[in-house]
Amino acid sequence: MNSICTSSVPQPLAATPLVLPMSEGHVRAGFPSPAEDFAVNRLDLTQILITHPQATFLLRVAGASMREAGIDDGDTLVVDRAIKPRHGHIVVAVVDGEFTVKTLHQRAGRMRLKAANPTFPDIVPKDGQTVEVWGVVSSCIKRFTI
C-alpha cells in the first residue's frame, strides 16, 4: 500500500483485514495483584448481626437485672421478632405495658421470666395471665466511652 498519494483521482483501496492477536486482561505497568483472584467483600456488621431486617429492632437497656447474662445498663439490644421464642432464649416481653428483658423459661406449658442477677426477682405470670413476648434478643452491643 502506498502511503503517499501521487494521483489526484481517488483510488480504490483493496483492503484485506489484518488479524492481530488480542491479549486477555488488563496490561498495566507494574505487577498484577496476586490478591485479585481472592477478593471478597469485607465483613459487614449489619449482615452479621441482622438476619431478618424487616423484623429487627434496636432497644436500649435500663437496669441491671440481666448482668450475669452479659447484658448491662446502657447496652443496645438487637431484637428479632421473626425468631420463635424457646426456653432459654433471652427475650423482650411486655409486662404491665412496658418492655422488659429477661430469660424465658418455658416448661410443661408454664412460663416464667427469669432475671440474670440474684438480687432481682423473676416475673411469674399469675393464673390466666399471659405475658406477651415481643421479640428474641439475638445480640447485645456494648459501646465503650472513647
Binding site: 429492632f57 434496636l58 432497644l59 436500649r60 437497656v61 435500663a62 437496669g63 441491671a64 437485672s65 440481666m66 448482668r67 447484658i71 445498663d73 443496645t76 439490644l77 431484637v79 423482650v92 412496658e98 418492655f99 422488659t100 428483658v101 429477661k102 432475671a115
Partner: peptide, 14 residues
C-alpha cells in the same frame, strides 16, 4: 423516632 434515631430507641427494663 423509634427506628431511625439511636437516641429514640425504646427502653427495655432489665
Amino acid at each position: 423516632q423509634y427506628t431511625t434515631r439511636l437516641e429514640d430507641v425504646p427502653v427495655a427494663r432489665a
